[in-house]
Design a protein around this nucleic acid. Sequence first.
DNA 1: TTGAAAGCGTTACCAT
DNA 2: ATGGTAACGCTTTCAA
Lengths: 338, 338
Amino acid sequence: MQPTIKDIAKELDINFSSVSRALNNKPGVSEETRKLVIKTAAGMGYKPNSIARGLVNRSTKTIGVILPDIINPVFGAIATGIIDTANANDYDIFLCISNWSNKKERDYIHTIQQKQVDGLIIKTVDDSNQKLFKDIQVPVIGHESWSTNINYTSVSTDNEKGGYIAAKHLINCGYRKTGIIEGPIYASAGVYRRKGFIQGFRDSGLEFDENRIFSNKYDIESGYSLARELFNSYPDTDSIFNGNDFMALGTLKYLEENNLKPGKDVGVIGFDNIGMAGLPQIKLTTIKQPKYSIGRIMINVLLDEIAIKNQGNENFPQRIMLEPKLIHRGTTCRQKTA
Amino acid sequence: MQPTIKDIAKELDINFSSVSRALNNKPGVSEETRKLVIKTAAGMGYKPNSIARGLVNRSTKTIGVILPDIINPVFGAIATGIIDTANANDYDIFLCISNWSNKKERDYIHTIQQKQVDGLIIKTVDDSNQKLFKDIQVPVIGHESWSTNINYTSVSTDNEKGGYIAAKHLINCGYRKTGIIEGPIYASAGVYRRKGFIQGFRDSGLEFDENRIFSNKYDIESGYSLARELFNSYPDTDSIFNGNDFMALGTLKYLEENNLKPGKDVGVIGFDNIGMAGLPQIKLTTIKQPKYSIGRIMINVLLDEIAIKNQGNENFPQRIMLEPKLIHRGTTCRQKTA
DNA sequence: TTGAAAGCGTTACCAT
DNA sequence: ATGGTAACGCTTTCAA
């Protein structure tokens, strides 16, 4: 059995409240007893029970984080940003993976509340669980989800702008027969990326044929099979805007297998800029997201909201948007464009 | 404020212990009151406080998991296996990332205990923190760490065998001037992989020059720079055994930039078989690990040890080894070998 | 400075 | 079947 403060108190023949005061650097104990307590506590291998502490303090110093997957290094990077920054501020992270399942996400939203986290960071699969947020008692920060009728802060890359930049780049390269390969149709990020992309075409006086949009899951396999579908339906396709880099990797796989040279026969652009995108064998042109910063900013904003709330102040939701950036590599036209 | 069982009791003008019984499907309440309690609880939006529950039950139904990083999809896959299986058994996961830092790892070992987890799964950076395990009060499962003087179960791929297989394959391909590019020198997995690899040479009557071993971190950049170092020191290098696929990716990058064709000019073999290894642009020959299964088995064994312990039985540490498998792709000799 | 006691939300055990 | 109460380990307030 782990020793408790009562055991320490018994050992020293003092009251356990004094032990508590000593261990927490609270006033009300002589320097002498404090030193003695700390020493014997260490000797006995005492470790505070943070569950008991959480019960009385009504704060667990823990933030719940719900992410859809963890194999995609984008979320790995975001999670790392969250964890690093939280730890630096003395908070722990309770990480949950919804596996792109609405049901799992819903379950996690419930269990995480029961665990009395001090705040919640979540990237929802789509909008369907957002109604659950309104009776969460702690601050919530969303990633890639924003609508005017919700009351929590969201931080994401400016996906619409990212899509716009991608479109402009493809057009500048001279591509005209573009297809879109994207993730789940209702995924918030995808909606904005697509919107910006189509707007980019429009602003160039071009029309984008929305039949050329194919959607499935955000992984390599889906990118691969959607590329096939796209080319089967539209053999004249000269370029592809991918929902993320994983899907672009699948697209590249399809092209390779069909002897189509990316950047020459077909322009390919991704989204995220994951580590592998820069490999010389890949050289994927993509829209970079500040992944680590997204995590860092989310937790900073959340911690701030927690502090404000504890002071009894009201907070109102913000929409924080980070800058996307074109990374021009080998899978789109070679020469740099304006 | 979240309603508590006392609030429900007050509402119904019954004792809160009856509410507890009703909500937990324990005997001692009439079906009538049970239904009433459940109904009003739902109506009031009651959510059990699992922290209070944990305090009295001395079980949080939570498993702590400490992994060194999460950007490498190997750990992503392992974590997914752990989380899926734990959830299926009604356990939650408290996931921590040590970022390959001994200090962070040590801190996490402490905080995770304070959070009263029911068990711990950990992949240590190296052996230095293993002494901390002996005064952990809950079952511990290690990944890729095993020595006879420790008392916890470990599950990993048979790394020694994996290294052996890699060596045999390289030799069969006809390579003789092999270099090793590996992670931190004390990393347990690397030690066994290297040992098996050298043994493979020996068993073929060949001598492996240990000066050709270069080590750094388990990432793409390290693989890249170590490849350069290796070729600078040993320009006659004809093949490379990489500590993991990420490092192999870095090696491939170096080769590409120096116009060396993998599989033709230089044989390259990795370890893990991450998703990207199979891409046609990469086609990395590698030693496959059953990543998801590693996670699944770790949690299953842990849950078993927890159950045994709760029955008051003693458990003794096991070393569970999973089979590695050669995946022969394009970065080593083309024709299949025995 | 120290001791005593209440209370956090829950479960479990005792009466009734 | 129900009510009452102790207990989990801790922090905090109030007395002494």
